[in-house]
Design a protein around this nucleic acid. Structure first.
Lengths: 231, 231
DNA sequence: TTGATACTTCGACCAATTCCGAAGCATTCT
DNA sequence: AGAATGCTTCGGAATTGGTCGAAGTATCAA
């Protein structure tokens, strides 16, 4: 198969409404069963099975058998980045027609996980607060954690040692938010921060979606520790 | 239209072999006429016209009328990044079946432009040389130009001032190469370096493709100035 | 063993989409 | 003006591909 045909094949897989729903449902990095994904996409189990087989064979998904369940998840962070990059192109229109967005969409805009880090209004707010306080610097191409940021993360107990392994300098990745149209903190640092928030009960996943809500406790800590003015 | 439907629509547009050919043909950032794109995709002008209309309406392409020609180009760097991210998922299979790759594919693997910067064996070789000499540092998430790199680019006449505007530090973006499976230099610095190579006749575009070849003059300068061992 | 759940395979139907020939419009060349 | 080029629109044929009912396999629970 030619290179171009492979390209079209991959894009076409993401180009079906049902499969698109499933892929987006897997964007939080969790592994879901075929039935869960079918319900999520609003299709029957047979149809979902067919879709999942195709996506798995094409290398978009990995499947793990566990008893009578089959857990599906994105095959790699690269797949998540592909989905995010498509979302970024697809979003502008949605922003213009914001009137039509339902409550579920609103929750996603307020806060969500983007595979392994935080996005939406929440993600951008945290990022803004870190920038304003001089804890990180973020350009279009890349970003960096400053010495004060390093101290802050250390004090707060966010484990960014793994990301620091390379050299002295801690670099991080900006990710353009499709709902806010502004960059938020991604990469290893973003992932560590997101994990920290979940582990300490600062944020909680809203049942069945990848939207997250901030707990009262989280509100307080985010404000006190990171200076987030989360409106 | 729901957010998910928009997502599927965009992905489906990229998921047709003809349209995929066109998008890849536009990946060098140039603007091509409808007829050129039709020939490139191996379809008739009518069919191409229909495809181009759809992609333009969806915001993937911009069209500029000039006399009786209509020049089409990618609507934004974000679109180029989307295409690149899909390519990254689509590539592994091609690597395995490398036996089947024709001469055109080989040229692309040797060196090509990735929208505005250099990729392929050429792009990776330059990046490796810069890293080895300590001119840049590149992590998975982000990279940075060192002081010695700053001096080198200045001495060589590569204009990276624009990218330096923000703050003192020069950050750069790594881009995972789909053919080499290793990162190469992208972002503003990568674009500036690529432009420099074209402007000085170090590299030349291979007619009708986005593959590039290194001129004898370019070979010498890349070796002497940047220490590239381009095999 | 019996029944229930999770998932897949098969087959047929239906809708969407691609495709090109023919014709039409706009611009440029002679 | 007349002819040629670049591109678009129209209409109908052919194919692809999603969908679900029905039936089949595998696992688990009593």
């Amino acid at each position: 198969m030619s290179n171009n045909a492979r390209f079209a094949e991959i894009a076409a897989l993401a180009g079906d409404p049902g499969r698109a729903s499933m892929l987006n449902g897997l964007m939080d990095g969790r592994a879901l069963t075929a039935t869960e994904l079918a319900r999520l996409a609003g299709i029957t189990a047979q149809t979902a099975s067919s879709h999942l087989t195709k996506m798995t064979e094409a290398g978009l998904l990995l499947v793990e058998k566990q008893g009578r369940h089959r857990y599906h998840r994105l095959a790699s962070p690269a797949v998540a980045q592909m989905i995010e990059s498509i979302m970024r192109i697809a979003a502008p229109e949605a922003v213009v027609r914001q009137l039509r967005t339902g409550p579920r969409d609103m929750a996603l805009r307020a806060g969500r996980t983007c595979y392994d880090h935080l996005a939406g209004h929440l993600g951008v707010s945290i990022t803004d607060a870190l920038i304003d306080a001089g804890h990180i610097e973020l350009g279009l191409d890349a970003g960096e954690v400053t010495d004060s940021g390093l101290a802050l993360f250390d004090r707060a107990g966010v484990d960014i040692k793994a990301a620091a392994a390379k050299r002295g300098r801690i670099l991080c990745r900006p990710c353009l938010d499709w709902s806010e149209r502004r960059p938020h903190l991604a990469g290893a640092i973003g992932a560590a921060l997101c994990a920290h928030c979940f582990n300490h009960g600062w944020i909680r996943r809203i049942e069945g979606t990848r939207a997250v809500s901030v707990t009262p406790n989280g509100h307080r800590h985010l404000r006190e520790t990171f200076g987030v003015r989360y409106s």
